[in-house]
Simulated assay, not measured.
Amino acid sequence: MDVDLLEKTEIRIEGIVTEGTNLTELAAVAAAVLNLPPEKLMVIDVRPDQVAFDVLLPTLRAEDFFGSERDLLDAVVKVAGVRLTAQAAVHSAGILGAIALDRDEAAAAIERSTRMGSAIRANRRPRVVVFPTGFELEEGRIEDTNTPYLVKLFSQAGFVAEPGHVLADRLESLTSGLEGAASEAGLIVTTGGVGAEDKDFSVEAIERLDPDAATPWLVRFTRGQGRHVKDGIRIGVGEWGGCLLVALPGPHDEVRLTAPILLRGYKERWPKAVLAERIAEAVRGKFRTGGPGHAGHDHAGHGHHPHAHAHHHDSGAAAPVGAVTSEEGAAS
């Protein structure tokens, strides 16, 4: 069960004495106890009888830290130069304070929270919000055909679906827009902004909120060719505070191709990696068969009108994932 730390991410061990201790090793040992990647926990303060760590993630699994105080103390004392006093203890504000629960209390708390979450989800009609992205829509240059289509599709499937405002092509704007809507929705879908140009940030916004988001490639490019500043086109599926976040391409034919897959995956609660790969494979399949949205199309653009993006990046610069480019062929 994932829990939101609500920005209270500091963990303090009191009654700890260090002498010549490697702080990187200390943080890595503590991270392993909490089932965190070593780079997601860092030492931020050392005092004569205290060490403070900061968790560099917005959410953690309750099972990974509830009742873990004894394990954490037993692990850090094995690091060279660390000594614990008889009063050694772990303290934290907010939900991380559950580290100090004993094992029975922790198990009971997780079970209660899981039951409560299941009951809430069972009695709440899921809300879906669709956000178009891009300056073309902000300025009224093209028609948004994606949002009405997606809202209608999810509404007919029994969800409360509604359009969101146009999100600007800026990483901060996209991230804050997703974060703000996630507390009131079960699913957020963005269209456009998944390409390889310097104005495409939909996938990166999801990765900011969920570093473990699934982001499979659709097409690979040679970075620096034309306007490409990234290695290719990806879609993204992540989670934030219990809300599923999905970044779809902008071309309308690709939205129509992938939306039924998204609808089924959301209804059946597919894991995000499975959902992302099935969406990606549908688009790759269209590339391989030379459909109207071939690899020369601009997913960087927001192409919500079928022809709005036809003039964009150089044709022949892209290859569907799994295809062999001329460079790769020459090297093989």
Rank of each mutant, 00 (worst) to 15 (best):
I188W: 03
T258K: 01
P48E: 07
A93L: 13
P260F: 05
A317P: 00
A282P: 03
D49N: 11
D144W: 08
G117F: 00
F131V: 02
P320A: 13
I110P: 10
K8R: 15
E179M: 13
P38L: 03
I44D: 07
D198W: 11
K78C: 00
R12H: 11
A161P: 07
P163R: 10
D298P: 07
A317Q: 02
L73P: 05
W217Y: 15
L72F: 06
H311M: 08
A30T: 07
L72W: 06
V255E: 02
D4H: 14
S326C: 00
R47K: 14
H294R: 09
P148I: 12
T18Y: 05
A98E: 10
V189H: 04
E25N: 07
R112K: 15
D71Y: 02
V130W: 02
T147M: 08
H297Y: 09
R170A: 09
F66Y: 15
G140M: 06
L167M: 12
P37S: 10
M42L: 11
E207V: 04
T175D: 06
L174D: 03
A62N: 00
D169G: 05
I120N: 00
L167D: 07
K8G: 00
A247Y: 05
H297G: 11
F53Q: 02
L150E: 06
L56K: 12
Y149P: 05
E69P: 01
V77H: 04
L263R: 02
F135Q: 04
E281K: 10
A98G: 13
T24V: 15
H297C: 08
T145F: 14
V166L: 04
R284C: 04
G236A: 15
Y149W: 12
T258M: 05
R269K: 14
P249T: 09
L137S: 03
V321W: 06
D74R: 12
R220H: 14
P132M: 02
T21L: 09
K286T: 13
E239T: 13
A88F: 07
E162Y: 01
V189G: 05
A282C: 05
A106Q: 06
A86H: 08
E207N: 07
V151M: 07
P38C: 03
I13P: 02
L96K: 08
R220A: 11
L244F: 02
L56N: 07
R141W: 12
Y266W: 11
S176E: 15
L244Q: 04
D45N: 13
V229K: 10
L137W: 01
L96T: 03
G242D: 08
L171N: 05
L209H: 07
S183K: 13
L171K: 12
G226D: 09
E204W: 01
A280Q: 01
R12A: 15
Y266F: 15
K40A: 14
P132E: 04
F201I: 01
F159I: 10
R264H: 13
T258V: 13
V128Y: 02
P48F: 02
A161V: 11
L137F: 01
I16V: 15
L26F: 12
A119N: 08
S202W: 04
A31C: 05
I110L: 09
L245D: 08
R264G: 00
N146G: 14
T133S: 11
